[in-house]
């Protein structure tokens, strides 16, 4: 049964349309990420779910019940903000038990839950510290504990990692996913970082300008981007100027490449062919070019090649050891696997 539903939600701020025709269904226990650049409406969507903004039209349903008009303090959701959300005058314990006190739980029960949830985030020893004595990562873990202590139906996370250092970000993000699966709580996660989204989500909702570009699993979104926007936003893409030369064929300067059916684009129309680095390979009969860079990344190596005729720089993922015999300046051929390519019309 659906735990959280957005039904045709629309929200405008003055003349700016933040959300339009927003439909989303979260199943019990799944982690769905709203992913997109600033201004795409993801935070607005989250805040409408939390009750801090009221939708102009449409409904919010929790387990089938319409809560659209319910004030935020009655919704029983847990929320983690981007930064600075811990109450500075209360200790960690005081913060975590805040929601328990508003629900008037007795002291014994409060202490039990606080201990339980602090152990979940692995901060049991820091109960009597204050916010300013904690690092950024610790603060967010306390915020998470605080949100979970009340055993909410839905967990909302508003870019919780954006304000943290890169190293802390990766560790904490995995922590959050671990805790979320362990507790089994339905979670809505907002971020602009596609790497984060790919790493922890059950499903990703890619957004742009107030509407949904694609809703799918990380694999689907990465391997089969529905639109050029999604293709460019998630992961990296190589851009090859080409023309449509058939129903499932594109022509890149003479070389014919088989691609998925190009919707609504007639033969002869010029496009940008978006291809992932791992869909390019070194092939003797491929598009000729010169090696301009070799970047070792541990598990794989990226080879940068400047193609002769199109003067375009492409990045080829050659896997482990694929570049061992290459040096800068070498002449190579670039082969294209178009089976996952996305066509983007150009004017």
């Amino acid at each position: 049964m659906s735990a959280l539903t957005f039904e045709a939600v629309r929200k405008t701020f003055g003349s700016n349309v933040a959300l339009e025709g927003f439909d989303l269904d979260l199943q019990q226990g799944e982690l769905v990420t709203l992913l997109g650049p600033s201004g795409c409406g993801k935070t607005t969507g989250l805040r409408i779910a939390a009750g801090f903004e009221r939708a102009d039209s449409g409904k919010i349903l929790v387990e089938g019940a319409d809560i659209s008009k319910m004030p935020p303090h009655k919704r029983n959701m847990g929320m983690v903000f981007q930064s600075y959300s811990l109450f500075p005058n209360l200790t960690v314990t005081g913060n975590v038990e805040y929601g328990l006190r508003t629900r008037r739980l007795d002291k014994v029960e409060r202490e039990r839950r606080v201990a339980e949830v602090l152990e979940l985030v692995q901060l049991t020893a820091l109960g009597s510290r204050y916010a300013h004595q904690l690092s950024g990562g610790q603060q967010q873990r306390v915020a998470l504990a605080r949100a979970l202590a009340v055993r909410p139906r839905v967990l909302l996370l508003d870019e919780p990692l954006s304000a943290l250092d890169a190293k802390v970000r990766t560790t904490l993000r995995d922590e959050i996913r671990r805790i979320q699966t362990e507790v089994g709580i339905t979670t809505l996660f907002v971020t602009h970082d596609q790497e984060e989204a790919l790493a922890i989500s059950d499903r990703i909702c890619v957004m742009s300008n107030g509407h949904i570009e694609q809703l799918g699993t990380p694999t689907e979104v990465y391997r089969k981007p529905a639109t050029a926007f999604v293709a460019r936003f998630v992961g990296t893409m190589n851009v090859l100027p080409a023309t449509i030369s058939g129903a499932t064929e594109a022509n890149v300067n003479g070389t014919r490449i088989a691609i998925p059916a190009a919707k609504g684009m007639g033969k002869g129309s010029s496009i940008s062919l978006l291809v992932r680095p791992e869909d390019l390979m070194l092939a003797t009969d491929g598009l000729p070019g010169t090696v301009t860079s070799i970047t070792f990344q541990g598990a794989s190596t990226l080879v940068g090649v400047r193609l002769d005729v199109i003067d375009q720089l492409v990045s080829i993922d050659v896997g482990q050891g694929g570049a061992d015999t290459l040096t800068l300046g070498d002449r190579v051929g670039v082969g294209v696997n178009g089976s996952n390519a996305v066509c983007e019309p150009t004017e």
């Binding site: 929601g99 915020a143 605080r146 949100a147």
Partner: peptide, 27 residues
């Protein structure tokens, strides 16, 4: 007084009164 404190308090079930009594005025 950060807006996020006010919102966090509401999110955790606190009314305006609760916020001022437990966070706002003490701060």
């Amino acid at each position: 007084l950060k807006a996020s404190w006010r919102e966090a308090s509401a999110n955790l079930g606190g009314t305006t009164f609760t916020y001022w009594r437990r966070v706002g005025l003490p701060v």
